[in-house]
Lab assay of single mutants.
Amino acid sequence: SEEEIREAFRVFDKDGNGYISAADLRHVMTNLGEKLTDEEVDEMIREADIDGDGQVNYEDFVQMMTA
């Protein structure tokens, strides 16, 4: 549901600035027990970053979650 997606976005957007940065993503993945290299984190950001601004905004996140 849209509310679940919004809630998930809030979990990833640690600093609440409306964007998921590589640092935000790394933090959440580490908490989930996933040890990722910087390259892996950057690749995840690139794949999710639809508009190419280097971070994942809510619209990018929705597209990723509903793809």
Rank of each mutant, 00 (worst) to 15 (best):
S1H: 11
S1Y: 12
E2M: 13
E3C: 13
E3H: 12
E4D: 08
E4Q: 11
I5W: 14
R6M: 06
R6P: 00
R6D: 01
R6A: 02
R6I: 06
E7A: 14
E7W: 06
E7H: 09
A8Y: 09
A8Q: 08
F9T: 00
F9Q: 00
F9D: 00
R10H: 04
R10F: 03
V11P: 04
F12L: 04
D13W: 02
K14F: 13
K14Q: 08
K14D: 04
K14C: 06
D15N: 14
D15I: 07
D15K: 09
G16Y: 04
G16W: 03
G16L: 07
G16T: 03
G16K: 07
G16V: 03
G16A: 06
N17Y: 06
N17M: 08
N17P: 00
N17R: 10
N17D: 07
N17F: 07
N17E: 04
N17I: 06
G18E: 01
G18Y: 02
G18A: 01
G18I: 01
Y19L: 07
Y19E: 02
Y19V: 04
Y19C: 04
I20S: 00
S21W: 06
S21E: 04
S21N: 08
S21I: 04
A22D: 04
A22Q: 09
A22Y: 13
A23I: 07
A23L: 09
D24S: 06
L25R: 00
L25V: 10
R26W: 07
R26F: 06
H27W: 14
H27D: 06
H27Y: 14
V28Y: 02
V28W: 03
V28E: 00
V28Q: 01
T30F: 13
T30Q: 12
T30L: 15
T30E: 10
N31D: 05
N31W: 15
N31K: 14
G33D: 10
E34W: 15
E34F: 15
E34I: 15
E34Y: 15
E34M: 15
E34G: 14
K35D: 07
K35A: 09
K35P: 11
K35Q: 09
L36I: 08
L36D: 01
T37E: 03
T37Q: 04
T37S: 10
D38G: 08
D38C: 07
E39W: 12
E39N: 07
E39Y: 10
E40V: 09
V41W: 14
D42I: 12
D42C: 08
E43H: 14
E43F: 14
E43T: 13
E43V: 12
E43N: 14
E43I: 14
M44T: 02
M44D: 01
M44I: 08
I45R: 03
I45D: 00
I45K: 02
R46A: 08
E47I: 15
E47Q: 15
E47G: 15
A48F: 12
D49E: 12
D49S: 12
D49N: 14
I50V: 12
I50T: 12
I50E: 05
D51W: 10
D51M: 11
G52R: 11
G52L: 10
D53V: 08
D53I: 10
D53W: 10
G54W: 04
G54Q: 05
G54F: 04
G54L: 04
Q55D: 06
Q55S: 07
Q55M: 14
Q55E: 06
V56K: 00
V56L: 08
N57H: 13
N57M: 11
N57L: 12
Y58F: 08
Y58K: 01
Y58D: 00
Y58M: 05
E59M: 09
E59Y: 08
D60F: 15
F61Y: 05
F61V: 14
F61E: 00
F61P: 00
V62T: 03
V62K: 04
V62W: 06
V62C: 02
V62F: 07
Q63I: 09
Q63E: 05
Q63F: 11
Q63C: 08
M64I: 09
M64Y: 09
M64L: 11
M65E: 01
T66K: 11
A67V: 08
A67H: 14
A67D: 08
A67I: 08
